[in-house]
Design a protein around this nucleic acid. Structure first.
Lengths: 284, 284
DNA sequence: CTGCCGATGTAATTTAACTACATTTAAATG
DNA sequence: CATTTAAATGTAGTTAAATTACATCGGCAG
């Protein structure tokens, strides 16, 4: 856990003098890591051992070790930050911002995804005789992508971005059917109804959505991720990216589970694509 | 500049003993930051002052200061590294790896994208009377996504993932037409031919692809990105993610260029979506 | 072969960090 | 309200780490 956050969180638990130390550090962490224990003690108006005790309280070996942790947390705190695009931004500027925000979003998704849930979703997928991917609006592209990906595994897979087709597929569903529903908010009425319908017909339902949403509650397995909301008008919809990566994760789990024979299959697909391409060294 | 990179880059300039130090640090930086100068000297089989001199050569005040820099660079130097999935990986493990590889790919794309080219692409898009997004295979999902995004701007936009439809659109193209072709390799024969056809019919062609590809050469504006190749079977196709973010960048540039009136339009679209959703506080 | 310069090591010095103990402060109980 | 006790803080001494100054080694030019 990030050291700065840790200090902030424990502020209440510290003693009076320790809090003085904490405040000095929080106010100017960059100065703090460059100071000796004596300097810092003077700044906080406490004795040197107090500073030392403060460090140990934060599970470090001592002052130098604490400085190391602090330094890391200063650097590590915000590798990629989500920054809003301003109307005055130059192309360089908004390009960077959007890439960085996207990476920040993926990082946040990574932090919040539950590998155990991934595992259960993979369980269902490998056992499925028929896989459907459903997504509406922005998530429909993700569903298409998923279809493309799983199609290479030589699995009966389809995707729909049409509510009627979704319902029809669900009505014909059976126990071997796995339905993957993709929705960032998890509040799209149509999709929630489809989830219900699918379960009524004994299909397994995997939801790729956000935590505590109606859709998550309706699913057999809810693969949830926290992705910063797109409050800003200019902001890209980072959720699609996270969803796509989640699909990649499921696909990978799927391949791993299926073992070697399926990997050969993948190779064949890749090779089949080759002849539709210009060679790397071709003149054109 | 990142300390680890700095060491690596200066390896040649170091003296024999200093290089020993450098190698020990590069081999196990995590150990290095936890060691004292004496320990590190012993590990590198050199004397303590040599280590100290090594530190100063890298523009630090001394050993402790160097450790701080190193710690920071460990934290933010290579935040996300692309690592291959092993068949023995646990769900936790492959989930992390895939997210991290995706982020690393986006980072690499970010480094290599040319903002000036982005700007020219935005020029073309804003002037276009009709925008087409074309993508085949894995890129077709990206094209769909782009359509969805630009549709919100109330611009005549269409996407196709069918070669025949692409050709038909190109034949009817005129000067006001902007064709955006999406292909990671830029070697798909069909797409390159479509690019040619589009230009013959005076359409503007934007390619989102990789550098020095046939498709890049055929386009009016080639928005190229370096994305690590998917050599590994298990690896996700990171290129799609980069392409999507590139679309986000173009969309953002588009909105910024169009100014305030168009932003109002965006708001209206967002609001229109609202009523198809369950409220956040709804009971279900 | 010899003298010089850069590179490296040794030993001494300085500085920083830590420990043990003393003192203060605050809290609780009779 | 006084007294006891424990927790918190500070002081001084100790230890360990880092740095400096100086000595020595080794390679290269003259």
């Amino acid at each position: 856990m990030n050291t700065i956050d840790k200090i902030q969180k424990n502020l209440a638990n510290f003693s009076k003098s320790e809090r003085k130390v904490a405040e000095v550090i929080l106010a100017e962490p960059q100065i703090a890591i460059q100071s000796s224990i004596a300097t810092l003690a003077k700044m906080a108006d406490v004795s040197e051992p107090t500073v030392n005790r403060f460090c140990r309280r934060l599970d470090t070996k001592g002052f130098p070790d604490f400085k190391l942790h602090l330094a890391q947390s200063l650097a590590n705190g915000t590798p990629y930050v989500s920054r809003h695009v301003e109307s005055s931004d130059s192309p360089e500027s908004y390009t960077s911002k959007i890439f960085e925000s996207s990476m920040a979003a993926l990082d946040s998704a990574k932090q919040s995804i539950d590998a155990q849930v991934v595992n259960r979703a993979v369980d269902l997928l490998t056992q499925g005789k028929q896989i459907y991917f459903f997504g509406l609006g922005a998530s429909s592209a993700v569903a298409h992508d998923a279809q493309n990906k799983f199609f290479r595994f030589n699995v009966p897979v389809m995707c729909f971005d049409d509510a009627l087709m979704m319902r029809m597929s669900c009505i014909n569903a059976s126990e071997g059917t796995v339905v993957v529903l993709i929705s960032h908010t998890g509040r799209t009425k149509t999709l929630v109804e489809v989830a219900k319908l699918a379960r009524e017909n004994h299909a397994h339902v995997i939801a790729i959505t956000s935590k505590d949403s109606p859709l998550a509650r309706e699913a057999s397995v809810a693969l949830t991720m926290d992705v910063p909301e797109d409050t800003d008008l200019y902001m890209p919809m980072a959720s699609r990216l996270a969803q796509m990566v989640a699909i990649d994760v499921l696909a990978t789990g799927f391949t791993l589970r299926r073992g070697i024979r399926f990997r050969d299959n993948l190779k064949r697909v890749k090779e089949a694509l080759r002849e539709s391409r210009f060679e790397k060294n071709s003149s054109l």
